[in-house]
């Protein structure tokens, strides 16, 4: 069953055509990596999936809900689709533990003891149990991002969206965050969509790679096929550029 489905989706910012005839189907449980040069529409695409950006035309089905239908309650989708941001977006006025427990309490009305147990388990999983009572300002970028991942996981979502999760991190912090993401891809049956420039991560984890440029999906292939033998000239050029870094 497909978890996310784009059908002829168009998205504009004024005159700028941000998403151009996007057709895409992601099955439940798949791990898909989305790559492309900056300004290609990757972030815009991923942000339409949980309604942070609206689409102008076409159909976007997420977990059975039609996002373009005004009657759709976006909060129902967000309950099941988590997002991890480039700049973490942790709640600055809440402790690490409260960051994780807040949405399950307010949205899922999870029992308080159960909520705390799950939150501590998740902090354990991302290696930050000792930071439970710290404020976000006291954490490094890499630690913030691992807390943000734990916060998303606490909702027990069906799908998790990663919008350039390591792009704002110092190089020595990236590994820890990618390790956590790798474990999630391996151990869970969540649908994962990851916008990233980390090619080694894509090669190791992705079932499929999607290449975007100028608001269009130019290539959609299995990971192996994409890296061994990309068909699109622009994808070839992009790969040679990022791999020479």
């Amino acid at each position: 069953m497909s978890m996310i489905e784009f059908k002829d989706v168009q998205k504009y910012y004024g005159d700028f055509h941000a998403l151009h005839d996007v057709n895409l189907k992601i099955d439940a449980g798949e791990t898909v990596v989305l790559i492309g040069p900056s300004g290609s529409g990757k972030s815009t695409l991923i942000r339409t999936i949980n309604g942070l950006e609206e689409i102008e035309e076409g159909q976007l089905l997420v977990d059975g809900f039609d996002l373009h239908d005004p009657k759709t309650d976006i909060n129902k989708i967000r309950k099941n689709v988590g997002m991890v941001f480039q700049h973490f977006n942790l709640y600055n006025n809440k402790t690490v533990l409260e960051n994780i427990m807040l949405a399950p309490r307010l949205v899922l009305h999870r029992d308080e003891a159960e909520n705390k147990r799950i939150a501590m388990e998740l902090l354990e999983q991302v290696g930050l149990a000792d930071k439970a009572n710290s404020m976000p300002a006291a954490l490094s970028g890499g630690q913030k991002q691992r807390v943000a991942i734990a916060r998303s996981l606490a909702m027990k979502p069906k799908a998790l969206l990663f919008d350039e999760p390591t792009s704002a991190l110092d190089p020595e912090m990236i590994g820890d965050v990618l390790d956590v993401m790798r474990d999630i891809a391996r151990d869970s049956d969540m649908t994962l969509l990851v916008v990233t420039h980390e090619m080694s991560f894509a090669k190791a984890v992705a079932d499929r790679v999607i290449f975007m440029a100028d608001g269009r999906i130019l290539e959609d292939s299995s990971t192996e096929a994409f890296f061994e033998n990309p068909t699109e000239p622009r994808a070839k050029k992009f790969l040679s550029q990022v791999e020479h870094h």
């Binding site: 973490f88 977006n89 949405a103």
Partner: peptide, 16 residues
């Protein structure tokens, strides 16, 4: 703006 986006993406309503 990230504070509101983070909260909304996390499932909170605008009011919450």
């Amino acid at each position: 703006a990230g504070q509101m986006e983070g909260a909304r993406a996390n499932g909170l309503t605008f009011g919450q």
